[in-house]
């Protein structure tokens, strides 16, 4: 049982993961790494939902279901993103953001 670990620990962990994801998304220059940063953000959200559900509202399931749906949608999103990244690699021969930049204002 997780009874000994207070809820705050989970919230601190998820907040750290969330901002690690945001930091990674904004600083990394590789498309795959940016995708991984987004997964970090979504997993931080998942931890939040499950922790809230388990500790605060143990007799309902809304948070768990939300987590399941987020996992499924994240997989779909990653599939489309990676398909486009493969296409980009074919035309640019690179997946670095600085190279994939034809449009400038």
């Amino acid at each position: 049982m997780t009874g000994n670990i207070p809820l705050e620990y989970f919230l601190v962990l998820s907040t750290l993961m969330f901002f690690t994801g945001i930091f990674g998304f904004l600083t990394r220059r590789n498309l795959i790494t940016m995708l991984m940063s987004i997964e970090l953000i979504l997993n931080a959200v998942n931890i939040n939902f499950v922790a809230f559900n388990h500790y605060l509202y143990p007799n309902q399931l809304q948070g768990h279901f939300f987590t399941l749906i987020i996992i499924a949608v994240a997989a779909a999103e990653a599939a489309v993103a990676i398909a486009i990244i493969i296409n980009i690699y074919r035309s640019f021969k690179s997946i670095e953001v600085d190279k994939v930049n034809q449009m400038k204002n």
Binding site: S14, F18, G21, I22, I38, I41, L42, A44, V45, N48, F49, F52, N53, Q62, G63, F66, I70
Partner: peptide
């Protein structure tokens, strides 16, 4: 992702 983080706190 950002939107969901907000939703998790609303929940």
């Amino acid at each position: 992702g950002i939107l969901l983080f907000g939703l998790s706190f609303i929940y």
